[in-house]
Design a protein around this nucleic acid. Structure first.
Lengths: 193, 193
DNA sequence: AGTTAAGCGGACGATATCGTCCGCATGGTT
DNA sequence: AACCATGCGGACGATATCGTCCGCTTAACT
């Protein structure tokens, strides 16, 4: 992870240190703001929450769409990480699935996935990350079918979708984390053959 | 269901027939629009989709907030109806729960519940309807605990929340209904003691 | 079929948000 | 420590959306 990114190096030099910082602060502020106010949140709000000027936001992300796209990418990356981490252990597959879903809840506050509320465009890179996450979970489910801990009719997409839904936080629900964990545990119980 | 509504009659006369029609069309169009574009959807879009002028929208719902509030109320009413209908049958409680959740999915396209994406204010009347729905489901869960078809640690809120989450439709998921049904069936399987 | 008040539509001024632009600040380099 | 290119902030003109207002239309009643 050095110099220019994956596809045909576009970035000429390293970003200046303050620029790297600011970029990260903008992303964090944006995630929080989008969760709080939805995808139509004014860029000025994001900028203010990040403690930078609007100009800085637009420099790093040339349009609102680009910013939202970056949030989505970041979120799928988190999902991928959670899936990878969960799959690494040698516990029964169903336990790994449970761990994955719990992890997703934990990441909840930072996840901005393309749920309803404005069309978040998903770019090519993001599609790749999403595909990787799917593959990881696919393997996990196969393992579950094989070791007999998971019923065979479960789709990979179900896990991602369920996780995405749980990453939402309903404003009127106090103590969301606990509720989400209950939902997961019951769902996981239903996963047994 | 005649004349003025429940609480202290506010409406002086009956609405004219065309007015009733238009009100309904606005609500339907608004539900669709909000699902498609989020709660920040321009009022002009709603009006256009309903085939009326903006003036008409604002006459029936004095502010955007009022319109969103009406949608929320209507949605909880649907949830209540689904819960009532499901509880009426004399099948085992767990089957009724399953029916309730499937019904909720069916209503999906019309449900606009206070999920993330802008604070939908929930008014007093709506709170009452929501409470009724909760009571209905409470009774159902008790019955389930009693007839031994449902584990006792399930919270009523879980059902409402799960239903609400399922009523979302993730834009990138094709054939959402089928997926949602799978999620429900697995969840319901997990509900057994 | 005439009367009238309820209802309708959409133009309009006010306001909010967008994304750009440019003079100033600062990290990095010699 | 001096240079300067990268990065920063926020004012600004352009655009989008808001909610109101009022002259016209039409349902409802006689």
């Amino acid at each position: 992870m050095n110099e220019s990114q994956s596809s045909a190096g576009v970035r000429r030099r390293e970003l200046r240190r303050d620029a790297v910082d600011n970029r990260e602060r903008v992303l964090a502020a944006a995630a929080a703001a989008v969760r709080r106010e939805g995808t139509a949140v004014p860029m000025a709000t994001v900028a203010a929450n990040a403690g930078v000027g609007v100009g800085t936001v637009y420099r790093h992300f040339p349009s609102r769409e680009a910013l939202l796209g970056a949030l989505t990418h970041r979120s799928f990356q988190m999902v991928l990480d959670a899936a990878t981490k969960a799959a690494e252990t040698d516990q029964p597959a169903i336990a790994a699935v449970r761990a994955f879903l719990h992890q997703t809840i934990e990441h909840g506050p930072d996840l901005v996935l393309p749920l309803h509320g404005g069309p978040l465009v998903v770019d090519e890179d993001t599609v790749k990350v999403r595909a990787q996450a799917h593959r990881r979970l696919d393997a996990l489910l196969s393992r579950g079918e094989h070791d007999g801990t998971i019923r065979p009719d479960v789709r990979t997409a179900d896990l991602v979708i369920f996780g995405a839904l749980l990453a939402q936080q309903l404003p009127y629900v106090p103590d969301w984390t606990r509720t989400a964990r209950r939902l997961v545990d019951i769902y996981v119980a239903g996963l047994a053959p």
